[in-house]
Structure formats: C-alpha cells, structure tokens
Design a protein around this nucleic acid. Structure first.
Lengths: 117, 117
DNA sequence: CCGTATCCCGGCGGATACTG
DNA sequence: CAGTATCCGCCGGGATACGG
C-alpha cells in the first residue's frame, strides 16, 4: 500500500519523499534515464557511444542525467586519462539490482505498444 | 538494449516514443502516478479515499493523473450514480500486469532509502 | 462526493557556442 | 573525446474558487 515510513529518503535532486515507489520513479524519472539504464544494464559504454545509441539526446542532457544517476549511486564513472580522454559508464552494484526491473518494464512496454494489432 | 522498433508507440500525452522502457516510464511518470498505482495494485478505491491516502495531493492533480492513467488504459473508472455520487477506481487487466513491477520497485526503493544505516 | 476552471510560477530540458 | 556555459521557452503542477 502507500507504505509511508517515519523518515524520509533523499536523492540528488534533494526532493524529500516517504514513498519508496515515488522515490524510485523519481530517481529514474528524467526524460532520458530509462533508456540510459536500459543500455547500461547490458554493457558498459563510453560517453560518445552512449550519445550515439540515444538518438536525439544532447551532450548537455546526457551529461546532466549521468551526473544525477551518479550522485544517486546508480551509475559509476571511470575515467582513463589517455589522450584523447576515455570515460566509461557502468552500473554500480546498486544499479545492477535495477536491471531485472528495467527488463520487466521493457517487456510490459513492448506488450503495451503492440496492444492494438 | 536500446531496442528501438520501426514504428512508434503513443500514449495519452501524445508523445511519440520508440523505446518501450521510455514509454513505460513516461506513462507512469507523473508526480503522483507511482503511489496511485501502488495503492490501486492492492485495492479498488474511491476518489476521496484515494485523496486521503495520498497526503499533499490536490483534487485537481488527482483528477488529472487518474484521467491520464485511464486514457492510457491502466485504470478503470466505475461510476455509481447514487446521491451522493460514488466513483470507484481500479486497475484494468493491462494495469494489473504492472503490479509485480510496482512491487519490485517498492522493494528496491526501500532498500535504497535504507542504504546508509 | 466528485469533480472543472483559472491563474501563475519554477524548473526541466532544448539550442547553441565554447574548452581542456 | 568529453564535457561546460548561457540563454530561453514550455508545461507540469500548485493554489484557489466554483459547479453538478
């Protein structure tokens, strides 16, 4: 049910929430976070490759959403200081626990999109 | 992976999306939809009771979010024309398929909120 | 009891240009 | 290659009042 706790949870956007469902959806609620997590749940990816895999996203938004996911402890950022620079993004242990959920979500979404055929 | 299809899916907000994960998160992405679905996944509820169960929500927002969920085929609205009026909200068959996902999401959220204890 | 109708504001996200 | 910096428009959502 509502399942409200005594305390409040916090996340990078500093919005306080008591309901864990609200919380989770808020953390993954950015316009591009769904597809980002979807991709990262299958592989580690570099910045520009991520950009290439997500048609329509701007550099700015990709950076912002990745920074939030990082601040929320979902995504890991590994910098290799070569020239040119190389930055690899992957899921943290906590983020990996989201993978099965993302998978279910994709399955549901596919069914939903094909419901009138 | 990105899993983009040839066609596009549509939902009540008339935003076109190709990625089923984006689609699902968008459908459930309103500020209050998470907790609404969480509640409805356990019981059918009348309008005012729903309002009571969701502290902070306004009548306007509750109506709007319910209307969107209804338009997206997630929520069913049953009107009993008594005096005073009685309106009961519940999940559709399609909406019920979201319940296990909501449950996983709640579990993850709880873990997340207690991660520093 | 169950909603609409208005008004209004903050901030998410787009476009574009620049940098280590 | 992997980002910042700046500007700005739009609309999600809050507050409030009214209606069947």
């Amino acid at each position: 049910m509502g399942n409200r706790l005594n305390g409040f949870g916090a996340c990078s956007t500093e919005v306080k929430m008591a309901c864990p469902v609200e919380m989770t959806l808020h953390i993954n609620g950015g316009k591009w976070k769904g597809i980002i997590l979807d991709i990262l749940s299958h592989q580690s990816v570099r910045f520009n490759e991520l950009k290439r895999l997500i048609p329509g996203i701007t550099q700015r938004m990709l950076t912002l959403q990745l920074r939030e996911l990082e601040a929320d402890g979902i995504v890991k950022r590994k910098v290799e200081n070569t020239v040119p620079k190389k930055v690899e993004y992957s899921l943290t242990e906590h983020g990996k626990k989201l993978s099965p959920i993302i998978a279910s979500i994709r399955i549901w979404g596919n069914e939903y999109m094909n419901k009138n055929e």
